[in-house]
Design a protein around this nucleic acid. Sequence first.
DNA 1: GTCTATAATTCGATAGAC
DNA 2: GTCTATCGAATTATAGAC
Lengths: 187, 187
Amino acid sequence: MRRSSEQTKATILAAARERFAVDGYERATIRSIAADAAIDPSMVMRYFGNKEKLFAAAAEFDLQLPRLAGLDRDDVGARLVEHFLDRWEGDEALMVLLRSAVTNAEAAHRMRAIFAEQLRPVTDEFLGERDDGGQRAALAASQILGLALARYVLRFDPVVAMSRAELVAWVGPTVQRYLAGRPEASV
Amino acid sequence: MRRSSEQTKATILAAARERFAVDGYERATIRSIAADAAIDPSMVMRYFGNKEKLFAAAAEFDLQLPRLAGLDRDDVGARLVEHFLDRWEGDEALMVLLRSAVTNAEAAHRMRAIFAEQLRPVTDEFLGERDDGGQRAALAASQILGLALARYVLRFDPVVAMSRAELVAWVGPTVQRYLAGRPEASV
DNA sequence: GTCTATAATTCGATAGAC
DNA sequence: GTCTATCGAATTATAGAC
């Protein structure tokens, strides 16, 4: 079947996202992506140049974080956890990055860029001017990424079994404390 | 140079651990491991059969968790974080698993086994008989793994820059709450 | 826009000489 | 115990016909 240039490119990109999300950068092959897209492997090269550029296109995405300023101040932790659960389950974008960033330097760089350019501005606006803003945002990111790792990648039974509400009830306060609490405060 | 069987095997295993820790299962090659060990690639096959068995040998390890029963009850979170920071920085064993478990099914299975067979018994003894023991242990694992991911793999600047004491002060209470607190409790 | 053919590497694995 | 030689498969990437 003859398709338009745009159609073809979009089909390849969708197949690439799926493969990169499941297999990570090294195991995902141009051949397997082409097969999923029901197209010849050379077409992938034609439209994206090489594997690296294809990954760059597939890994491009927007966290779509809400502004925290408008939220109840005691509620930002839970809201953030809910938002990230939605983003993890909504599409493969975050999984593409996580699965590749562990062994691929370029993907890890992307992760850091997204942290700096998309998460930091949002938490900074909430936190105001303070010198531990980077630490607090990074700690929140560590828990959110760790939760995704345990639930979607490593598939630890108890975390897989927990409901969205349970996860928010447990992890929300952690993120809340990282963003708004004192280090020593707990329980 | 002619070496003994034991020597050779140990040298190969050490090189394998390093490579798997840095590159993960797919990128680490038998050839590169052999080169690091200054030995012929065929020797690796001779001693370990195939790549899968070599990984199994390299990924075998003991968390060496302390018994929590003997500790101050309000202190287990901080002690666990300290212990894991030591284990992450002491040798490559945990990194071997983390770098591979994200894209390799066998490594992920190993991770779950270590969680179930080494972490669970220790937290269960501390928690006593209760039905949310698995959830609590898994939540603690999610934060500890997320911290390692941010600090050692993704290298988020703020987390890399934080001292051991700062990390314990921030993350200790989180683990403490997962093991001993109530879900809603925070700040 | 699509595909065939193929170059150039690289990998895991095996056979066998010394 | 160590190495050479090599197979067979898979990969990215390119050139060019239709």
